[in-house]
Amino acid sequence: MRHDEIIGKVQALAHLPDRGSTERATQSVLRTLAERLPTGLADHLAAQLPPDLAAHIRETTASATSEARPSGAGEPFDLTAFAGRVAVRAGTTEETALRYCAAVLEVLDAAVSPEEMRKLTDALPADIRELLPAGRADEPPA
């Protein structure tokens, strides 16, 4: 999926007013997701996205690696912390940030391979998985 298509779909799903706010929301979710995922998985996700969106993930994992994240593991935080981080980055409320998260994750579900999405789903705790599209969120971890 191309960058413009991803941004357009996120904008529609999240009911955002313009491209700038959609870019900011998408970037905020991708950076926070990259913090939560193991580095290798985040890098594989980035490889399936357009370069400008992948850059947000790669910059975040590079920063985490330089901070000596143990064994490339993702940071263990829950849905409340996830929404809080997205809200701060996007300059919005946590409630609105949850809407952004759900929209970005739904578009990712369509944009990346099913195998990659399954790995991403398995790496997330149950409360964050609730943001995934209904069919994906209900899948038990492998």
Rank of each mutant, 00 (worst) to 15 (best):
residue 1 M to I: 08
residue 26 T to W: 04
residue 123 A to S: 13
residue 70 P to Y: 13
residue 37 L to H: 01
residue 5 E to P: 01
residue 107 V to N: 04
residue 56 H to N: 09
residue 27 Q to A: 15
residue 122 D to Q: 03
residue 7 I to V: 12
residue 110 A to M: 09
residue 66 S to E: 14
residue 46 A to S: 06
residue 87 A to M: 08
residue 75 E to F: 07
residue 73 A to H: 07
residue 47 A to F: 04
residue 100 Y to G: 02
residue 88 V to N: 11
residue 63 S to P: 00
residue 102 A to P: 03
residue 109 D to W: 03
residue 72 G to C: 05
residue 35 E to C: 09
residue 141 P to E: 07
residue 8 G to I: 03
residue 9 K to N: 08
residue 36 R to L: 14
residue 129 R to S: 02
residue 84 G to N: 11
residue 36 R to I: 11
residue 137 A to W: 01
residue 88 V to A: 13
residue 73 A to R: 04
residue 18 D to L: 11
residue 113 S to F: 03
residue 37 L to I: 08
residue 65 T to F: 03
residue 25 A to K: 10
residue 121 T to P: 00
residue 15 H to M: 12
residue 7 I to C: 01
residue 11 Q to W: 02
residue 133 P to V: 09
residue 58 R to K: 14
residue 55 A to W: 06
residue 100 Y to P: 00
residue 2 R to N: 15
residue 120 L to N: 00
residue 140 P to R: 13
residue 14 A to T: 06
residue 6 I to M: 12
residue 116 E to G: 07
residue 124 L to G: 06
residue 97 A to Q: 07
residue 4 D to Q: 14
residue 62 A to I: 03
residue 5 E to M: 10
residue 117 M to L: 11
residue 89 R to L: 09
residue 79 L to H: 12
residue 135 G to M: 11
residue 70 P to E: 11
residue 105 L to A: 03
residue 62 A to G: 13
residue 13 L to I: 06
residue 99 R to W: 00
residue 109 D to P: 00
residue 32 T to V: 11
residue 56 H to Q: 08
residue 47 A to L: 05
residue 3 H to R: 15
residue 109 D to A: 14
residue 3 H to D: 09
residue 126 A to F: 02
residue 109 D to Y: 04
residue 105 L to T: 04
residue 95 E to W: 15
residue 27 Q to V: 14
residue 105 L to W: 00
residue 69 R to S: 08
residue 132 L to W: 00
residue 61 T to I: 07
residue 129 R to N: 01
residue 97 A to C: 05
residue 81 A to W: 07
residue 130 E to K: 12
residue 12 A to P: 00
residue 39 T to I: 12
residue 12 A to G: 08
residue 94 E to T: 15
residue 29 V to G: 02
residue 104 V to I: 05
residue 129 R to L: 02
residue 21 S to P: 02
residue 42 A to S: 12
residue 114 P to I: 01
residue 34 A to K: 03
residue 107 V to L: 06
residue 132 L to S: 06
residue 94 E to S: 15
residue 111 A to C: 06
residue 119 K to W: 01
residue 4 D to T: 09
residue 79 L to R: 15
residue 139 E to Q: 12
residue 8 G to F: 01
residue 88 V to H: 15
residue 131 L to T: 03
residue 125 P to H: 13
residue 47 A to Q: 05
residue 48 Q to E: 14
residue 44 H to P: 00
residue 56 H to S: 09
residue 119 K to G: 02
residue 137 A to C: 03
residue 67 E to C: 08
residue 28 S to Q: 10
residue 142 A to W: 11
residue 3 H to G: 01
residue 59 E to M: 13
residue 20 G to T: 14
residue 105 L to F: 08
residue 106 E to W: 02
residue 18 D to S: 14
residue 45 L to E: 01
residue 105 L to N: 08
residue 110 A to G: 08
residue 13 L to A: 14
residue 78 D to G: 14
residue 48 Q to C: 00
residue 42 A to E: 02
residue 72 G to Q: 06
residue 3 H to I: 04
residue 132 L to C: 08
residue 83 A to S: 13
residue 134 A to G: 04
residue 93 T to I: 05
residue 133 P to W: 05
residue 50 P to Y: 10
residue 57 I to H: 07
residue 112 V to H: 04
residue 38 P to L: 04
